[in-house]
């Protein structure tokens, strides 16, 4: 005999339990993907460079925000004009065992110069996790030259010699001089930004172009800023006019972007993105970055993608100029 009330009660109870189980299952977070115990942090720069130092600080603090607190090993894969390290990440297994870091202009300039096949990677296929060290590029002149503005450089009446390394400063020198119409000749081959800056102070050239924080270190020694390539004045140099104020709407910014190999699952990518978002709210980490002399800015994956796309457009626009300059002197 069936007792309708009891049946109804039992049925309701069963449904409630089932619903509860289902809801419970729905409420539980998705299973966190397992990470390897050791993660390679590959950067295309030699030890001691700004990117290397910042990456090492990230590698030191990031594990506590990742499941299993993996150990990071920073690998300096600096060969082939910065392509080797990016290629290493491009070819790595998308299992969370490798993450890369590079300055956006460096990676994108390689693509603009050599194409996807020549560069050995398609940067658009990486899964970007975050970016940091966003800062505008600047142009400065030596202590004994008369130029005070971008127009002074434009009207120099002769090619202005720029000391350059083989890195992103050369790309930005080419872009800014073409965009503004500054007559320019490159003095290439300086090994590292400080060496090029010493060249400026010695009088080997009349101008250099580097990020604002780096250039700021050499003002007391005689470097004189002419312009900051941004739309707004910078707190570090409140008295230096921007390129926009000088009538040239050209923004040149660098950032250190972190990326995962193509094919990395959405879940794994989220793990790294979330961890980096938390990292850039960690006061101890932020203080460590500041103590190393860098400003710990942060952009999430969406904003980073916008920055990369915008810069990619700029490099495509000036690709032929960059190729021409590289063919003469890189």
């Amino acid at each position: 005999m069936i007792y309708p009330v009891r049946f109804s009660f039992a049925a309701l109870a069963s449904i409630s339990i089932l619903l509860g189980v289902y809801q419970g299952a729905m409420a539980q977070p998705a299973k966190t993907p397992a990470l390897p115990s050791t993660i390679n942090f590959v950067i295309p720069y030699i030890p001691g460079t700004g990117a290397d130092i910042q990456t090492r600080v990230v590698a030191r603090f990031l594990p506590k925000y990742l499941p299993g607190s993996p150990t990071f090993v920073v690998k300096n894969d600096a060969g082939a004009g910065g392509r080797a390290g990016v290629q290493t990440v491009y070819r790595s297994k998308p299992d969370g065992s490798t993450i890369g870091g590079a300055y956006t202009p460096d990676a994108l300039a390689n693509e603009a110069l050599y194409g996807i096949e020549g560069a050995g990677f398609d940067f658009s296929k990486f899964h970007l996790s975050a970016s940091t060290y966003h800062q505008p590029y600047t142009t400065s002149v030596g202590p004994k030259v008369p130029y005070k503005t971008l127009d002074d450089l434009k009207k120099a009446g002769k090619p202005v010699p720029f000391c350059a390394t083989t890195g992103m400063d050369m790309s930005y020198i080419v872009i800014q001089t073409r965009a503004i119409g500054i007559p320019m000749r490159l003095i290439p081959g300086f090994k590292g930004a400080p060496t090029a800056m010493a060249g400026l102070l010695r009088g080997d050239c009349e101008a250099v172009s580097f990020g604002i924080e780096f250039t700021n270190r050499y003002l007391k020694d005689g470097a004189r800023p002419v312009a900051v390539f941004s739309s707004d004045r910078q707190t570090l140099w409140p008295n230096v006019p921007t390129s926009k104020e000088q009538g040239y709407n050209l923004e040149l910014e660098i950032s250190l972007v972190y990326f995962l190999p193509p094919g990395t699952s959405a879940e794994l990518t989220s793990v790294f993105r979330d961890a980096q978002a938390k990292l850039y709210r960690d006061n101890e980490f932020l203080e460590a970055v500041k103590a190393a002399g860098f400003t710990p800015t942060y952009a999430d994956a969406k904003r980073t993608q916008q920055l990369v796309s915008s810069l990619s457009g700029l490099f495509s626009k000036y690709a032929s100029d960059l190729k021409e300059a590289a063919a003469k002197t890189q």
Binding site: I46, G48, I53, V57, R217, Y218, A288, A291, A292, G293
Partner: peptide, 19 residues
């Protein structure tokens, strides 16, 4: 190159190297 790594060591310990 060795001095570059030493510089990195100084910087990571909160002593940025420069003029």
């Amino acid at each position: 190159a060795a001095m570059a790594v030493l510089m990195a060591g100084l910087t990571l310990h909160g002593i940025p190297v420069g003029p």
